[in-house]
Design a protein around this nucleic acid. Sequence first.
DNA 1: CTCGATGCAAACGATTTGCAAAATT
DNA 2: AATTTTGCAAATCGTTTGCATCGAG
Lengths: 145, 145
Amino acid sequence: MKPPEKAFSEYLASRNLKMTPQRRLILETFIQADGHLSSEELYTQVKSKDPSVGQATVYRTLKLFADSGIAEAVDFGDGLLRYELRYGQDHHDHLICDECGRNIEIVDPDIERLQEELARRYDFVLRRHKMYLFGLCKECRGKNQ
Amino acid sequence: MKPPEKAFSEYLASRNLKMTPQRRLILETFIQADGHLSSEELYTQVKSKDPSVGQATVYRTLKLFADSGIAEAVDFGDGLLRYELRYGQDHHDHLICDECGRNIEIVDPDIERLQEELARRYDFVLRRHKMYLFGLCKECRGKNQ
DNA sequence: CTCGATGCAAACGATTTGCAAAATT
DNA sequence: AATTTTGCAAATCGTTTGCATCGAG
């Protein structure tokens, strides 16, 4: 599958949008950090590499990433909008540690199948879903005993 | 199980908090509307009954409902905080129509069981989860054909 | 009477937008 | 050269908070 850099440039080209140093830097930083960064975390990291970059540019660029399909906005319900790189088309859900914030991407075909069944039972056609599992990971259970 | 009015008064009494006409009105309106109201929707409905009630009071009271356990905050990711009455302890997930906003509360023990399994596989102890299924209900599929 | 509760308006925090200047094609 | 992009600051939006006043117990 296409590397995000390439997919993004192609998207820009196809829309008469421009590749700028800021966009390059933001994408590079975003890829390096490859977790689930909030806009502000990314802004902080970007600013440490180039302090002249503005907050609004980071927000605008993340939105562009989402439009281009290389990233996806995810909402953990903590008031921050996060983005994650989309590698290909694979959908996934999240297993999140309440304590350390560790975030594991999961896919469970059995659950997805049951979701479809459930929707059918209520005569819904499913378009998408969000599933977040919150708990404590092994390490964090150890810490607080 | 205890009716919400009673549970709420008891909670107030136990904490030296006071039952006021505003709180009574807000709870009554909330119960009547018994869907998944956002703070502002509830505010609008309350204000139509008593225009002197302030926005802040509604926010504060909803938070109280959540603290007292008679309501729960749910976040559909649309930027609004919603609250729903908790009848007893039953947990449930949501099946939401993208078109008309219809919201069906669902519980599927099979899915819950698979979630537990999944968590165990990654050595997590699960504390809670959020699952939202989005799609189109029968009626809305009819409309736009 | 004593605190807690209220309404108002100002404050908030994350995100968005208007605008004039700067940079890409 | 034309048009998009940028950085800045001001604007938004939902929600929260400070404060003086009001009211429940």
